[in-house]
Amino acid sequence: MECQECQKRPATLHFTQVINGNKTEVHVCEVCAKEKGYMTYPEEGYSLHHLLSGLFNFDSSQMGSQQESSFTKKDELQCPKCEMTLSEFKRVGKFGCAECYHTFAGRLDPIFRRVHSGNTKHHGKIPKRKGGNLHLKKQVQEYKANLQQLIADEAFEEAAKIRDKIKELQAEMKDKEAGDNS
């Protein structure tokens, strides 16, 4: 079996990951496991700092050090809001502002996977006021999952009710969006 990440090397690590309650089988090679942050349970004496620097060092060794030094100076990612650079973030292990999350977005999944046991997406509370349509959106998602189940169970009467509820919520969302934009 080949590695699902690089599709080159043979997969040597096989395990099941549980993310948001869904089980997925993972088959990766040693190199990708490290690089993509699949090694979820750090050994004893782990610290986030080591974790981050270890992760990034791996990146740079791949690139070759000479290439990196000339490369980082010119094209290094920098947050437009707080001016934190990617290398500062690596060194400190802390974000400078909310915008950093967008600036460094492409580099974050492996870090989050390592720190949060394979997870990269939030699955919890939404701000009550600021969350706005997100609450409705979440509700619609739940109804939709419910609907699929009802159809699979051939409970069509129930399913019709749920479908109406979804329509109602979607209309409400449209109204809200229109309201927000005016």
């Binding site: 292990g93 974000f95 400078g96 909310a98 989050f112 720190v115 949060h116 939030h122 509370k125 939404i126």
Partner: peptide, 19 residues
């Protein structure tokens, strides 16, 4: 609040993000 639909509540340290 600093909140992102996919990352949740945004915190200074990556170990606290999400909830």
């Amino acid at each position: 609040y600093a909140f992102d639909e996919s990352r949740g509540y945004l915190t200074s340290c990556p170990t606290n993000v999400g909830t």
